[in-house]
């Protein structure tokens, strides 16, 4: 049984169909990439999975339909996300930010999450004191503190340079390979996605236009036209 199954998920905003009947499954212990040009509906997809956007279609977590669950309940069930604009709590220190999310039976979920992202030194700082890159890592650490079964990352590598991005990819890979969590990764950094993902889904104008392992997606002419040719 897949960890997450999406079945004809559709999200409409007024006249815009931001996600149009998209279906795919994420297997436990894998790293799934989700790419597409600006406005393709990637963030909306994460919103739908986490219960922050009203959608039709079905969403199942380990076989159980969670489509009618409110956002907080999905989070408690292990679906935890980061935000494209981070949304760190500016009035709380980094440690308090993580404590707000912390859950699970680990001895010290906060410390180990900070450790995993190599940002333990930020614990007593406020988010405003951090550089954008560091704040992004902190936002991933914050989600990790919740001991997610499924971690949804919305453009976590934006603003990282090539070297940082590679190191970040390695960290994600380690999380998945050591069985810590399963990841759905949204990013515009094509190299990062191609290098670390097991499978990739491609969205364009809310529709799924391709999917498969990186090599297949890279070779897909549809993808080249819609995405790689467009923005990369």
């Amino acid at each position: 049984m897949s960890l997450l199954e999406l079945d004809r998920v559709t999200v409409r905003y007024g006249g815009v169909t931001a996600v149009d009947s998209v279906g795919f499954a994420v297997e436990s212990g894998t790293l799934m990439g989700l790419i597409g040009p600006n406005g393709a509906g990637k963030t909306t997809m994460i919103d739908a999975i986490t219960g922050m956007a009203r959608c039709s279609g079905d969403i199942r977590l380990a076989g159980e339909s969670i489509a009618s669950w409110p956002a907080y309940r999905r989070s408690r069930a292990g679906i935890v996300r980061t935000f494209q604009s981070l949304e760190l709590f500016m009035e709380l220190t980094v440690r308090e930010n993580l404590q707000t999310y912390a859950r699970g039976r680990q001895a010290d979920p906060v410390a180990s999450a900070l450790e995993r992202m190599d940002v333990a030194w930020t614990a007593d700082r406020y988010p405003a004191e951090l550089s954008t890159g560091t704040a992004r890592l902190v936002s991933v650490a914050r989600a990790l503190a919740a001991a997610p079964r499924l971690l949804l990352l919305d453009e976590p590598a934006a603003g990282l340079d090539a070297g940082e991005s590679r190191r970040f990819g390695a960290k994600l890979r380690r999380l998945v390979d050591s069985g810590v969590t399963t990841i759905l990764l949204v990013d515009h950094d094509v190299d990062l996605i191609m290098n670390v993902c097991d499978d990739i889904q491609v969205l364009d104008f809310g529709k799924k236009i391709a999917s498969g392992p990186p090599s297949a997606v890279r070779a897909d002419p549809e993808v080249a036209r819609a995405y790689l040719g467009g923005t990369a």
Binding site: T50, G51, M52, P70, A71, Y72, R73, S75, R76, V80, R81, F83, E87, L88, F89, M90, E91, L92, E96, Q99, T100, Y101, R103, A143, A146
Partner: peptide, 24 residues
């Protein structure tokens, strides 16, 4: 306490608070 951290989280950003599993 946990309550206080959650309170400040809710007052500042309800979306991120819901993502943290807080029943607002």
């Amino acid at each position: 306490s946990t309550f206080g951290r959650r309170a400040l989280a809710v007052r500042e950003n309800e979306a991120a608070a819901a993502a943290a599993g807080i029943d607002i």
